[in-house]
């Protein structure tokens, strides 16, 4: 179901934007196709490896272990661990989301995985060190990190509260 919704949104946006790029008649359309091709070449081998790797890892790691570390009952400590794991996870969104999705399936708690995804999104070490630090500089990086630091735990906590509320209401 979600695949259908997401695909409709995605291809709707592609059609609308593609039309306006085409109507410019200045090579914008052609240029965007070139960019798409460059990105596809970059991304395709990564997705392939990431999906295979995450699948094998999920098959290897026993669900009890995942549940014990980042399960729904692990509380604030689980949120902290999930945040740290998110910060330490290298690679692009395909790897992080594949790992998070697999963890959710084999016993991870929703709040903990929200914390994991949020931490990876806000400050995964790989991206911060390679890109942010080298491009925006040390001062700007440290300031942004200082503001963002507690967010994964807070959002994970809020996710747990909302899930709890929804369970009570039902």
């Amino acid at each position: 179901m979600n695949i259908v919704i997401a695909s409709l949104l995605l291809y709707g946006a592609v059609l609308v934007l593609g039309r306006s790029a085409w109507q410019r008649h200045d090579g914008s359309f052609h240029r965007s196709l070139q960019l798409a091709l460059v990105q596809a070449r970059l991304v395709a081998p990564r997705i392939f490896c990431a999906v295979l790797g995450a699948g094998f890892i999920a098959a290897l790691v026993p669900p009890e272990a995942v549940a014990a570390v980042v399960g729904g009952d692990t509380g604030v400590l689980g949120l902290l661990i999930a945040s740290a794991l998110g910060a330490a996870t290298p690679g692009g969104p395909m790897l992080a989301f594949a790992v998070g999705g697999a963890a959710l399936e084999v016993g991870g708690g929703t709040p903990q995985i929200v914390a994991f995804v949020t931490a990876w999104s806000l400050y995964n070490l790989n991206r911060t060190l390679v890109w942010e630090l080298s491009i925006t500089g040390r001062a700007a990086t440290l300031r942004r990190l200082a503001c963002a630091l507690p967010l994964p735990v807070l959002l994970g906590f809020a996710a747990g509260e909302i899930a709890g509320l929804a369970a009570v209401l039902q």
Binding site: S32, L37, A40
Partner: peptide, 9 residues
Amino acid sequence: VLLAGLLTV
């Protein structure tokens, strides 16, 4: 990737 290319332009 099509969306990304279009938005970039």
